[in-house]
Amino acid sequence: MKREHIILAAVFVVLALVPFAAELTGQASWTRLVGQALIYGMAAASLNFILGYGGMVSFGHAAFFGIGGYVVGIMYHHFDAGTAFLGLIPGTDQMLITLPAAILIAGLAAALVGAMSLRTGGVQFIMITLAFAQMFFFLFISLKTYGGEDGIMVRRTNSLPGLNMRDKATLYWVVLGLAAAYYLFLRRLVQSSFGQIIAGIRQNERRMAAMGISTYRYKLYAFVLSGMGAGLAGALMVNFLRFASPDMMHWSRSGELMIMVILGGVGTLAGPFIGAGVLFTLETTLARYTEHWMLPVGIILLLVVMTSKGGLMALLRRLGGKG
């Protein structure tokens, strides 16, 4: 227990120092890269809650990531144009409003998708979640008001009272703070009474039903919580990149989130963050050397899936256990 706390604190401090390190070494892109990896880590961690802890293989998780992003984009669009969404809701650039709104809307979307998808299981569940994500993808492509295929530019990052959000480092620390908070939230969640029920459902749904648990309700609640987390990550990403596009919810993005989870370690807390960091670093590093970076990524991924059980977390634990 103690050791875990020390490691977590150390990792947090190191991550908090990234902007300084970037300035000292002149590698200004570091802050941006680590920030993005943290946000992907949040999205992957939210997926991991249903996938790793709950056993629900959702292949449409990027939809909620994208919806969260679009909430920020659309609110900014109306704020900028001085118009109102559906003629009713005025836009805003206040992060204290946009982030909760993104979480809420993504949660509603997850409730809708989950309520229908969770009636199926197995392969059908994988495919129906993919189908819903595709529907959202094409829905946003067809909304010309919000940029259609091109998406929405958010010229300025949302503001937070008392902070200069135009400063890259400040924005990074906000992201880091939220990522840490989300990590702690998930840590609590999997240890909670609800987390135990979800773990039970993953292992043996029939047994849980025989104990009086209406598994559908619990799975739906988990699905909604997970979608909310992805919505938060998406909202942060749009703030970070100042851009929302349908690509955020493309099916290959859902696949990438799954890769991050597997790579890091299914059903572990830190795994998705590690997986996101590794995949994102791998992609950006390889992309610098070759335009065919997808080939080595594909081969590495294939090797990881074929040879390892438990991803990088299992590897770390093995190393930690021996050393």
């Binding site: 996938l51 292949f59 890769i259 997808m294 991924l301 294939l302 899936v305």
Partner: peptide, 15 residues
């Protein structure tokens, strides 16, 4: 399980 299959074949697509 399905998860490993999805990922391995996703990797095959990239390759």
């Amino acid at each position: 399980d399905h998860l490993d299959q999805v990922l391995a074949t996703f990797a095959l697509i990239l390759i």
